[in-house]
């Protein structure tokens, strides 16, 4: 767990100790640090796929990390279209990946 963390850095120094919190992504528990965004917490645990394209079902992850592209949109505690890169991870947060829409939900069969 947290193998992707930059614990030591020659210029920025060692990573300060952060309070650990628990978040849930698609039901699976992950450890995050206080101060993480949802995107950084999940990436630290090796999770890269945050959603599947509504129509094509292809996997998507973060792209711009500044809230501009909306590629990292997830569902948080039932709220839709939350940008993982701009949202702080909070203890016990329930995060869900967005799934492809069923044919009946898609207008005319395509987006």
């Amino acid at each position: 767990m947290n193998s992707m963390r930059v614990n030591h850095h020659p210029v920025l120094g060692d990573l300060e100790t952060h309070k650990e919190i628990k978040i849930y992504f698609d039901g699976q528990e992950y450890t995050a640090y206080e101060g993480d965004t949802i995107a950084s917490a999940l990436l630290a645990s090796g999770v890269r796929t945050l959603r599947f394209h509504e129509d094509k079902e292809t996997p998507r992850g973060i792209y711009c990390n500044i809230g501009h592209c909306f590629e990292c949109r997830v569902k948080v505690d039932g709220k839709k279209t939350v940008r993982a890169c701009l949202t702080s991870a909070e203890n016990h947060m329930q995060i869900e990946s967005c799934k492809a829409l069923s044919a009946s939900e898609v207008k005319g069969g395509t987006l």
Partner: peptide
């Protein structure tokens, strides 16, 4: 370019330096 693991260069910079998470 839409594959998870592809990101803008600035995204990787913030992940590494600010969040202290390696992009890969």
């Amino acid at each position: 370019w839409t594959l998870p693991g592809v990101m803008s260069i600035g995204a990787a910079q913030v992940m590494g330096n600010v969040h202290r998470v390696k992009p890969g």
